[in-house]
Design a protein around this nucleic acid. Sequence first.
DNA 1: TATGCAACTGCAATCCCTTGCATCTATGAT
DNA 2: ATCATAGATGCAAGGGATTGCAGTTGCATA
Lengths: 139, 139
Amino acid sequence: MVKTGEILSKLTAQGYRITPQRIMILDAVENADDHISAEEIFTLVCLQYPNVNISTVYRTLELLKQLELVTETDFGDGRVRYHSIKKGHHHHLVCQKCGGIIDMEESIFTPLRESLLKQYGFDADIHHLAIFGTCKKCR
Amino acid sequence: MVKTGEILSKLTAQGYRITPQRIMILDAVENADDHISAEEIFTLVCLQYPNVNISTVYRTLELLKQLELVTETDFGDGRVRYHSIKKGHHHHLVCQKCGGIIDMEESIFTPLRESLLKQYGFDADIHHLAIFGTCKKCR
DNA sequence: TATGCAACTGCAATCCCTTGCATCTATGAT
DNA sequence: ATCATAGATGCAAGGGATTGCAGTTGCATA
């Protein structure tokens, strides 16, 4: 379990600064019940500090993504959503008929990653993937 | 091998109309050497018929995608690219270090699709996927 | 061949996200 | 505690893609 304090020291360790905006954005992602969009984070942070700019939110999320503190998932609804790695790695099956989302274990990609490594020498970086298709009910 | 004529009759069979714009857009995708972007298609069509609108290009591509005549791939460079299914299904490994793209066989996803079906009853619709990671040279 | 209408297009506005730039500030050094 | 500066922010403009709407057009029918 990574604590917010540890995350902040990870920032300074790499030469990045800790700013009020970053703390608030990080808090919003950490405390979100589910995958949260940039717009939603922006709205939450605005309640505390109305001067934040949406571009700061995007830039901070980009940074947290690079540092592997949050993951980004595109559920295909026109806006990307973010998730704290504290809550674990997982992937999603998105049904194109009913819109339902099934969470799946990360381990399901292990055979694929192995065969990509063996056949192509490629080290796949599959973080938080949404796969589209048709769920059991809708087939 | 699907011919353009067949494609057009597939449109009419489903109640869609054949318009000059659609023919030109389809031609652009069919004759493209590689994966082509909406903007590139737009530019090509404009040479013949300067009045086309970029939104018609996007709407036509959306339609062709639904009819499974073209596939859409996001190579992560900020614009989506399109490809005729006539040229076969395949997937891509995109190296995040050198930017290189390796094409891979569709069959590499067969085991994954089978386990998704078995474990989750989910029929995955993996058309034209780009997987990010690190290639052999850059590791 | 002429007609009616649903499908389609062009236009403009809008959405999500990114970027360049001038200003500000967190932080290490003094 | 103060200073210098590289890193961060806010603002505004811009890029790719989508959407609502009014006007146009392909095409089935007569």
